[in-house]
Amino acid sequence: MNKFIQSLPKVELHLHIEGTLEPELMLELAQRNSINIPFNSVEEIRDAYNFHNLQSFLDIYFQGADVLVHEQDFFDLTWAYLLRCQEDNVLHTEIFFDPQAHTERGILFDTVVNGIDRALNKGVSELGITSKLIMCFLRHLDEESAFKTLTQAQAHKDKIIGVGLDSTEIGNPANKFERVFKQAIEQGFLTVAHAGEEGPADNISEALSLLKITRIDHGVRCSEDASLVKQLVSERIPLTVCPLSNIKLKVFDRMEQHNIVTLLRQGVCVTINSDDPAYFGGYMTDNFVAVNNAHPMNKAEIAQFTFNAIEASFVSPSEQERLRQVTQKYIALHQE
């Protein structure tokens, strides 16, 4: 089954590019850019990747982002991730980036997006991996900062397909960003938001009603509200679930307690994703394998995660059909 999972075509919809910063690259960029970081070795950085909650993770996440200074840094970061996609047979990826994590420390918006975009274009031409780019607002910052970021994105609408909302969920409700999302929709951006990870099921309902989002990032706390689960099923509202992340950040203590397979069998459009894989110990194949080890599935169920992700993706109907055909062909070749 692990061999089947390894080569299974995959689509990733919940990936923070800053969260793919492996310790080796962090150290290399710190030296290249003469940035002081409180670590002297790859091993010290790896040891620091032991968190006890979302905030302790965010602290080192933003600390790591400090080594990203030049357009080439963002290119190198993104290209390294795309090479991992190639290893895991990820055919399409929809990448989050946090512009405020960089503009707040004096890095130009253009520097960030141009470096990422250049790598994504190379990913299509050299690796055959398609992609979309989603700009996330940091919810611990204020509405004014989000509006400023939305304005900065205007010059890059050819590169950015949507807006999202990430960072600390507790204490930063959806209504804080209702006006920003309304304006983003008016400007033609697609919308997603983190909800129901560290916060309750009500946060999911509020994100849907107030922000008018088309897919939920995380959303695992939906199980607290049976009527919400019914809504997710009937309206085919996707959840971009990140299993290893949920364990690392103590949303669930053990993978055996995770509800992703239960939600799948209930008919929810759940997908598997890696979130911040450098920090959470696993890319796409690692997440698929971890879920199957804890909740043994048949091949059709495992493949359904890919079909759900194709359905939930922001690509054209013709591109969705192409991805479905590639996946169906793979399954046909690996029938038991």
Rank of each mutant, 00 (worst) to 15 (best):
F252A: 01
T271D: 04
A312E: 04
N298A: 00
C242M: 05
N287L: 05
A303H: 00
K248F: 02
P296N: 03
K250V: 11
N259I: 10
H295A: 04
L249D: 02
E256N: 10
N308D: 02
D286S: 11
S274P: 05
V241D: 06
A300Q: 14
Q257E: 15
V251E: 02
F280Q: 02
M284K: 01
K250Y: 10
P296H: 00
L249P: 11
V315W: 02
S245C: 13
G282M: 06
I302W: 13
N308T: 11
Q304M: 13
V241T: 13
V268L: 07
L263R: 08
T240Q: 02
M255L: 13
Y283N: 06
H295P: 11
M284H: 01
N292K: 07
D276T: 06
F307L: 14
M255H: 06
E319P: 01
N246S: 11
L249R: 03
M255E: 08
D275P: 04
N308L: 03
Y283T: 07
V315L: 07
S313R: 05
M255Q: 10
A294Y: 11
E311Q: 14
D286A: 14
V289H: 02
S316M: 03
V289T: 14
E319F: 15
E311K: 13
L264M: 11
R265V: 09
Y279Q: 12
C269P: 07
Y279E: 08
H258L: 05
S274R: 07
P277V: 10
E301Y: 05
F252Q: 03
C242F: 00
